[in-house]
Design a protein around this nucleic acid. Structure first.
Length: 595
RNA sequence: GCCCAAGUGGCUCAGUGGUAGAGCAUCUUCUUGGUAAGAAGAGGGUCGUGGGUUCAAUUCCCACCUUGGGCUCCA
């Protein structure tokens, strides 16, 4: 972010803290940084709701009238601690800075003094004008769930009213493309409490979308040298013990299904001596490894690339669920590549190229995608399987390949999978939140845990490496983001209703039906609007459904054997022979491009 | 799970301490209209759920559930 804007927002957060403290003298200020879209400030001992925000804003506007330039106050660290003796949060920060040998600075403006390392605007009275407080939220101190939850106030600030208005308007516009809203309006899916939270139900139009995407995905995988596998939704507890999931992934798994007897017997209170436990799969990898170990493998068999759209179940906390983007049952477009050490780099590169190709196919250019290299947290040994040598090697190789592929990536410590480092590709949703889609994971643990091996060219057994990768990440999340990306105006090859035939009066119904039949035999997804409505109403409704093309047929078209084509952009393509329209739309569908 | 807010017919929303209303959608009838809403009539809601206060609760209070925005976590 622009440093001037950052300073403005940081300064506004000082002003907000000052206003909050005047209105709520018991509040304890903690941290208040600028963010990409604005700023926030966290307070302890502050109980407010969104209704309080206008009051705080009003006080900010009053206070700022008496504010001069931000004034730096030199102080000794011990004096600073004394000053904040009633605020354990600021005290903790000062003590921490002191430890690392930093000099503490305080900044004063008006009557408000805050612990701060600087970075303010020059003239508060003139510049702190165009701000708005947006929401109240809870946030754990230092982002740690085990710490106390503080009260966070979010706001934003700009250098002009125009920019502020534009920002607020953009948020409103973005809400219109929210996949939850469009999912309802376009009749794509819904989530039903009666079925279960986080378990989406796909309506016919949504299922077509999925189907088209899935067909595309299969074709591309076969082209790229993948084999297809299929595995069940549940697996025996022994499998998950071996994989380490029961150790490292326990809290995200649904509790086990006990078997060994039928439900009816159990309900009657009958006991069994031997019971078995099954878990809903949270991941597909252990199954794929079992397929590998079904027969002995030679170095000549590798690399093996096995893909499956596998539905997995993860017991996400309720507050984390969100539309299609965060669910409890979701279908990963998963694949595992099992290969020799000398093949790893090439296989990693191939996957990265594949990911980029897939994004392009759905209109996501790489500048819309943020890439992260997720590494282990070296200080947290309990979270990860495997030794340091393995981690060092896999992290180094992954970094090297990412650089070679010219990915613009950020490294993040502590974000690795328990079995290895990964490259994560994230896309923003309509509201600007980042969601992980593609992932490429370099696993040096599970193959050994499962004891899988191959015979090398000297007749010795070796343990292969394994890459886990998903391109969409999950169908649910990807389709959710796709809905927002296209704002429901899907390219013709994807769109659920490609053509809607609109007869002008009932007299053309017969002809309209022959048009529909013809299109159907050409595998074009077509609907007929046979209501006794005006053409205007039919157009309006088809437009709201976001169908790709409307074919209007009246007396003229019947006489000439033509159709009049209208695009959803409102464009009138005029009349043409039905055959010509079919030729055009089929070409467009085959090109898989946006109309 | 935690913090804040919301929850009224299929959808979008108005409303009130005296057992509910609009528009759209649905159904019926009329209308047969050339590029974004033709007309009339009808049906449809135990006002999220459970308690409490009250003569009386959809409205006030409490708890819970769900949804939205955050936090944590994550494909």
């Amino acid at each position: 972010m622009d440093i001037k804007l950052e300073n403005l927002r940081h300064s506004t957060s000082h002003l907000m803290a000052a206003a909050v403290l005047e209105l709520f003298p018991n509040a304890k200020p903690t941290l208040g940084p600028p963010t990409e879209d604005g700023f926030y400030y966290d307070f302890d001992e502050l109980k407010i709701s969104e209704d309080d925000l206008p009051k705080i804003e009003e006080r900010m506007r009053e206070i700022v009238k008496s504010w001069g330039m931000f004034e730096k106050l030199e102080t000794s660290n011990s004096e600073a601690i004394e000053q904040y003796k009633n605020n354990p949060y600021k005290k903790e920060l000062i003590e921490e800075h002191s430890k690392s040998g930093e000099k503490i600075t305080l900044y004063k403006s008006g009557n408000f003094i805050d612990l701060c390392k600087g970075g303010h605007i020059e003239n508060p009275q003139k510049e702190l004008k165009y701000f708005k407080l947006l929401s109240v939220a809870g946030a754990y101190w230092r982002g740690n769930e085990k710490n106390k939850m503080l009260t966070r106030i979010y706001g934003t600030a700009f250098f002009s009213q125009k920019e502020l208005d534009e920002y607020l308007k953009n948020i409103e516009e973005a809400k219109k493309r929210d996949h939850r809203k469009l999912g309802k309006e376009l009749d794509l899916f819904h989530i039903d409490e009666r079925v279960g939270l986080g378990l989406p139900l796909w309506h016919p139009k949504g299922a077509i979308l999925w189907r088209e995407i899935e067909d595309f995905w299969y074709k591309e995988h076969l082209k790229n040298g993948y084999g297809l596998v299929r595995t069940p939704h549940i697996g025996n507890s022994e499998l998950w013990k071996t994989s380490g999931h029961l150790n490292f992934y326990n809290s995200s798994m649904y509790p086990p299904l006990e078997a060994g007897q039928a439900l009816e017997e159990k309900q009657q209170g009958k006991k069994v001596d031997v019971s078995e436990e099954y878990y809903l799969k949270p991941m597909n990898c252990p199954f794929h490894l079992q397929i590998y170990s079904a027969t002995p493998k030679s170095y000549r068999d590798l690399p093996l690339r096995w893909a499956e759209c596998g539905t997995v179940y993860r017991y996400e906390k309720k507050g984390e669920l969100s539309g299609l983007i965060r669910v409890r049952g979701f279908t990963q477009d998963d694949a595992h590549i099992i290969c020799r050490k000398d093949q790893v780099e090439e296989e990693l590169e191939r996957v990265i190229d594949f990911i980029i190709y897939i994004y392009k196919s759905f209109g996501f250019e790489m500048d819309k995608v943020q890439v992260f290299l997720s590494l282990r947290d070296p200080d947290n040994k309990t979270k990860y399987a495997g030794d340091d040598t393995g981690w060092d090697f896999t992290e180094k190789v992954l970094r090297k390949v990412a650089n070679k592929c010219k990915l613009n990536f950020t490294e993040e410590k502590g974000e690795a999978a328990f079995y290895g480092p990964k490259l994560d590709f994230k896309i923003k949703d309509a509201l600007g939140r980042l969601w992980q889609c593609s992932t490429l994971q370099f696993d040096f643990n599970l193959p050994a845990k499962f004891g899988i091996e191959y015979t090398n060219d000297r007749g010795e057994k070796e343990t292969p490496y394994m890459l886990h990768r998903a391109l969409f990440g999950s169908y649910e999340r990807f389709i959710g983001l796709l809905i927002e990306h296209y704002a429901g105006n899907f390219p013709t090859w994807l769109t659920p209703v490609q053509v809607k035939v609109l007869p002008i009066t009932d007299k053309q119904l017969g002809y309209a039906k022959t048009v529909v039949d013809k299109l159907k035999t050409e595998s074009i997804r077509v609907e007929l609007d046979d209501r006794s409505e005006t053409l205007g109403a039919k157009i309006r409704d088809a437009q709201k459904e976001k169908v790709a093309y409307m074919l209007i047929v009246g007396e003229r078209e019947v006489k000439d054997g033509t159709v009049s084509e209208r695009g959803r952009s409102g464009k009138d393509y005029g009349s043409m022979k039905l055959e010509e329209f079919i030729k055009n739309i089929k070409e467009e569908i085959d090109r898989k491009t946006i109309n």
